[in-house]
Write a protein that binds this DNA or RNA. Structure first.
Length: 213
DNA sequence: GTACGGATGTTCT
DNA sequence: GAACATCCGTACC
């Protein structure tokens, strides 16, 4: 059960900082998805930073396009993309505006609305797997393209918002290479997670796809 | 427990 | 036409 002051929304200024400051500071924060059936809330346990045009692993690396447009906009908004023909993943845009940096939300612990999340994640064998991985997280929360560009810092009962929660102490934060990122983009240790948390997804190196027959 | 390949369609070259 | 910030079922220790 969430009680104040955990329920205080994070202000936009929180996101108007360099992405490498924001990413580890997001661990332990609470993401609330409001659906017609009720709220689903999770505590963030794993994230990855993507630092705009300078970052070969970022969707913004080759400039502004229709898909990544939200990344170039103001901080505190949600960038949702569709990948591998089946899945959605969600990011929170960080400042300064125009830099096109964002934090990929990779995993979390469902702390409210677990029964709703289970209905969306029928293949999950236990509750730790409900949001263990970026596409699983988006699926558990019912996040799709319709939420691309949503302001997560807006007041009120918005579809998606982010609350202060309890920030994870830096002594409990681990970091390492980003998952599934190809080439030079994989060298940066810009994946951050809560040490020893059972909801963190396993690391997988990038695997080039083989051509279909 | 780890390893592998298929599913699926949007995006960009 | 190829790549893709992934997941899942099956096979095999």
């Amino acid at each position: 059960m969430i009680t104040p002051p955990d329920r205080t929304p994070l202000p936009r200024e929180f996101f108007d900082r360099p992405v490498l400051e924001v990413a580890p500071d997001l661990l332990g924060r609470i993401l609330v998805r409001t659906t017609p059936d009720g709220p689903i809330a999770l505590r963030l346990t794993e994230v990855e930073a993507y630092d705009g045009a300078a970052d070969p692993g970022s969707h913004a690396y080759r400039g502004r396009t229709a898909r990544n447009d939200v990344m170039f906009g103001p901080p505190g908004h949600v960038y949702v993309y569709f990948t591998y023909g089946m899945w959605f993943c969600m990011n929170l845009v960080c400042g300064p505006e125009g830099r096109a940096s964002a934090v990929l939300l990779r995993a979390g612990e469902v702390i409210e609305g677990a029964e709703l999340a289970r209905k969306r994640r029928l293949s999950a064998r236990n509750d730790k797997e409900l949001a263990k991985g970026p596409a699983r997280l988006a699926t558990a929360l019912g996040v799709d393209r319709a939420l691309n560009g949503t302001d997560a810092c807006a007041p009120g009962e918005t579809p998606l918002r982010i609350l202060t929660g309890t920030a994870t102490g830096s002594d409990q934060v681990s970091n390492g290479p980003r998952t599934g990122v190809a080439g030079d983009g994989g060298v940066h240790p810009w994946r951050f997670w809560v040490s020893n948390d059972p909801t963190v997804s396993p690391y997988r190196a990038h695997v080039p796809r083989r051509r279909r027959s």
